[in-house]
Simulated assay, not measured.
Amino acid sequence: MDEQVDILDEHGKPTGESCLKSEAHRKGLLHPTVHIWLYTPEGRVLIQQRGKNKATHPLNWDVSVAGHVASGEKIISAAIREVEEEIGIQVSETELESLGTFKAVHKISEDFIDAELHHIFLCKLNVPLSQLTKQESEVEDLALVPLFKFAEETWGLATTGKYVPHGPTYYKTIIKAIKSRT
């Protein structure tokens, strides 16, 4: 979906301008997204396999839930909305724990520069995997993986082509945060 997104300056502050997501990607304009990492008390991480028709990294494994923040939408509201849209469960604001932001700029092609400010959240997964309903247009598959295996495959980069390349610093932050809560 090509929704309106707010444009941010190099410091992550709103410029007061907005445009279609496709234009932001074409011009490399920084815009906000949400990343929600769900984990179990036993130390397993929910990962999603991106849909086969995604413009970037189709069929790679990625964050539990992610999406763009619509123009004028509050960050926390976007996080709650995306969780419900992508995996079919409702979470409350109090269940989402902010880990801060992570700026990522990836040149996909000459006319596609993905410049995003990820607002990262952790959320305990309180239902079994079987109760999740994946959004068919966005999500190919869902899996729960042990944190040590996830760390080995992302932080250790043992399986570099399997995951979206967010980089070791990003993955280390997520892994350390989840480890300290399980």
Rank of each mutant, 00 (worst) to 15 (best):
F102W: 10
S180F: 14
K179Q: 12
H31S: 03
L144A: 03
I7V: 11
R181A: 07
I47W: 05
E95R: 06
I80P: 02
G156I: 08
L30W: 01
L38N: 02
Y163D: 00
G167Y: 07
H119P: 04
V65L: 03
H118Q: 07
I174C: 00
A104H: 15
H106F: 13
I120C: 01
V91N: 06
S137P: 14
T56Q: 05
L29R: 03
V83E: 01
L20C: 11
K13F: 05
M1E: 14
N126W: 12
L142Y: 03
E3I: 15
E136Y: 08
N60W: 04
R44M: 09
D2Q: 07
H106Q: 15
A143N: 15
H68Y: 11
T169W: 09
E140K: 13
L38I: 11
G12H: 13
V63A: 00
V91I: 15
K74A: 06
E97F: 12
L157P: 10
N53I: 10
E42D: 02
E93C: 06
H106T: 15
L96T: 11
K52N: 06
N60I: 11
E93Y: 01
A143K: 15
L96Q: 08
P168M: 11
I113G: 11
S180G: 12
A66W: 15
I89L: 07
R44G: 05
H25Q: 12
A115F: 14
I36W: 11
L144P: 02
V45A: 00
T159H: 07
R26Y: 10
V63D: 00
T133L: 14
L144N: 09
L30N: 10
I89M: 06
K134Y: 11
I174T: 03
C123I: 10
Y39G: 00
P58D: 00
A24V: 03
V127Y: 01
P165Y: 00
Y170P: 08
D114R: 14
G28M: 10
K13N: 03
P41G: 03
K149D: 11
V5H: 01
E153I: 08
P41W: 07
K27C: 12
I178Y: 02
G100W: 07
S92M: 15
K13H: 07
K13S: 06
D141K: 09
E153V: 07
K21E: 08
S92C: 14
F148A: 14
T182C: 10
S92W: 14
Q90L: 12
P14E: 04
L122W: 08
I75C: 00
I175Q: 00
Q131S: 15
E3K: 14
L144Y: 10
A151P: 07
T159P: 05
Q90M: 15
I80Y: 02
D6T: 11
I7C: 00
A78M: 08
Q135R: 13
V5F: 04
P41A: 04
I120K: 04
T101C: 01
L38Q: 00
E140C: 08
Q48V: 09
L8F: 05
L142S: 05
H166L: 12
L59T: 05
E95Y: 13
L30Y: 01
A151T: 13
D111A: 06
E140L: 09
L129R: 03
T159Y: 01
T182E: 03
H166M: 09
L117Q: 08
I178L: 01
R26F: 13
I175T: 02
V127Q: 04
I80T: 07
S137W: 14
E93Q: 13
E10N: 12
Y39K: 00
I108F: 07
Q131L: 15
V83A: 02
